[in-house]
Amino acid sequence: MAPPNEQIVLLTDGAASLLAAKTATSILRYRGENVVGVLDRSRAGQTTNQAFGVGGDTPIIASLSDAPDATTLTIGIAPPGGRVPDEWRPILIEAAQRGMKLVSGLHDFLCDDEEIAAAAKASGAVIHDVRRNRERDLAKAVGVRDDCLRILTVGQDCSIGKMLTALELTKGLKDRGVDAKFIATGQTGIMIEGDGCPVDCVVSDFVNGAVEKQILANQHHEVLVVEGQATISHPAYSCVSAGLLHGSTPHGMVMVYEVGRENVHGVDHVPLQPLPKLIAAYETLAALRMPSKVIAIAMNSRNVSEEEAAVERERVRAELGLPVADPLRHGVGELVDAIEALRAEVIAPAEAAQ
């Protein structure tokens, strides 16, 4: 886990949208007590709540000098391709010269940048490239404990709320006294949880095995909630989604979708697959390893009104016959009910057979 006294500055300088700054907004939401500021010269003087709708009165600052006690600089964006913006290099070098820990979830590793690495070496600063890994484990299908329920969040698209849903489900289960563990599979989730595996930066042959290793290491918990990535229908990222599905062998899945989104994020000419078709595909693909069903729907209704969200919720409930809720707008009670019902169905017979 991350140090409880860590003082973080999040770097989002020039990020044009909430989606681009999703790493920052997620850390503000789930580790806000550690964030002392967000460095974004275009919004300096605002609060993060004004700019991003989360984080309360956390200030947006114009330079590292505005947060002299900060210990860590964390890159707060997740851009396509994962490259470090050229205009950020002076800020990163300055942070390294100050001896601050540098945390990056980008595909461009800071430790491979000669100038940044030299500044860090001179000051003794630590560079943590979250996506850097040497996973080389093949999935062995070794079998997992029958008394550990596994839930995977899956999605209609990428950047749609699978991590947030998994975190909220984990919290909802814990609030009911269940020993639940969030399994992070992306850079932001790892920054929040303090452990996990960045599956989109694992060599493709080893994705299943890397995920399986996370399951085996954490199956002493009662429920594992695994963070999903992308979707099996995405034209670019489907391989990661399939590997995650087969590596985690979930007992059940929670499908996440966004109200009003019609086309694939980043591939605007490709329409999204309808939820019934995609659910059937997920269940068929999962069954090649282990039978699994979608047990609930998490809807992202951020772009519609309260009234529109209520109408959409009832429409999808009627169409799919499943519990439906927006984790932020409605809470996750209905979704956690579905997990607990599945747990009673799956775990009780297994325990009785022992």
Rank of each mutant, 00 (worst) to 15 (best):
V336Y: 01
V154E: 05
D112R: 12
T25A: 14
N208K: 08
I93D: 04
A348R: 13
D129F: 02
V35C: 05
L110I: 04
K171A: 04
A286R: 07
W88Q: 02
R31Q: 06
Q273R: 13
D113V: 06
N49L: 12
E262A: 14
D195K: 07
D112T: 14
V142L: 13
D69M: 02
T72K: 09
I192D: 06
F206A: 03
R131F: 14
G209H: 10
G228N: 00
K140T: 15
R317M: 08
Y30R: 08
I215W: 10
G53H: 03
P80D: 04
R132S: 05
E193C: 03
S248I: 06
A16V: 13
I295R: 02
D69C: 00
C148Q: 13
E351K: 09
T23M: 12
L138Y: 13
A318N: 05
L167G: 11
P4N: 11
A2H: 13
I61F: 02
V126P: 05
R89L: 10
V178G: 03
V142K: 14
S204Q: 13
K22P: 07
I339L: 13
G56V: 06
A120L: 06
H251A: 01
G228A: 00
I8R: 04
R313K: 11
T188V: 09
L39A: 08
A62K: 11
P235T: 00
G243Q: 03
V211D: 03
L39W: 03
L149T: 00
G228I: 03
E135K: 09
L19E: 07
A62F: 06
A242V: 11
S248Q: 11
S123G: 00
K181S: 03
I339V: 15
L64S: 12
R261N: 11
E258Q: 10
V54Y: 05
V84F: 09
